[in-house]
Computed example of a mutant assay.
Amino acid sequence: MGLSNDIAALTGFACECVLWGAYCILFLISLGLLYRRTQCGHLNATLLVMHCLLFTTCTAHFALEFNHFYTTLRATGVPGFANETKPLAASDIFISISDLLGDAVLIYRCWFLWGDHRWIVLPLALPAIAGFGACSHNSRGLMRN
């Protein structure tokens, strides 16, 4: 007997809950470490802003997923849980933005590490932007329906 889409989606959501909780703890620890760097005068404002934006978009994604979990299970139960809705399409857009921001942090660090060489950044930036465009295009099509 195979695993149904609804049970697989619920299992994925349970894993996402655990990982988001771990991310909250790691985010708070990293803010503490960044605060210590501020005391020494070595704060990189770009990384701090990107760090906070990344956490915000991940939290918005999780909030939309949790809302879907709560409202769908209350209304219909497990059957139909995996069905795509407009809030889930918005959640997909938030996770695409999170992915793009994570790539931007990686690209920024490579730019900084490799001494401002464009030949390092360009091969990293093009797939990141293309991936974001593809994911957000699919989600926008679903939001129109």
Results as ranks from 00 to 15, higher is better:
3 L>A: 06
4 S>Y: 02
7 I>D: 06
8 A>E: 09
9 A>N: 04
9 A>H: 06
9 A>Y: 05
11 T>Q: 14
13 F>G: 00
14 A>I: 09
16 E>S: 15
19 L>W: 06
24 C>V: 07
27 F>A: 08
27 F>I: 04
27 F>T: 07
28 L>K: 06
28 L>N: 08
32 G>T: 07
36 R>P: 06
38 T>F: 14
42 H>N: 13
44 N>C: 10
45 A>D: 10
46 T>P: 00
46 T>Q: 06
47 L>Y: 11
49 V>Y: 08
52 C>V: 12
57 T>W: 12
58 C>I: 12
59 T>P: 02
62 F>H: 03
62 F>M: 07
62 F>Y: 06
62 F>K: 04
64 L>W: 05
67 N>T: 13
69 F>E: 07
70 Y>I: 13
71 T>A: 08
72 T>D: 05
72 T>L: 06
73 L>R: 00
78 V>C: 03
78 V>W: 00
80 G>E: 00
82 A>V: 00
85 T>M: 03
86 K>I: 14
86 K>N: 11
90 A>N: 09
92 D>L: 15
92 D>K: 14
93 I>K: 03
97 I>A: 09
99 D>S: 14
101 L>Y: 04
102 G>C: 13
107 I>F: 00
113 L>A: 09
114 W>Y: 14
116 D>T: 10
119 W>Y: 15
121 V>L: 03
121 V>A: 01
122 L>Y: 10
124 L>F: 00
124 L>K: 00
125 A>N: 01
126 L>D: 01
129 I>E: 03
135 C>K: 14
135 C>W: 12
135 C>Q: 12
136 S>W: 11
137 H>Q: 12
138 N>G: 11
138 N>C: 13
139 S>R: 08
139 S>D: 09
140 R>D: 12
140 R>S: 14
141 G>N: 11
141 G>V: 08
142 L>I: 14
145 N>T: 13
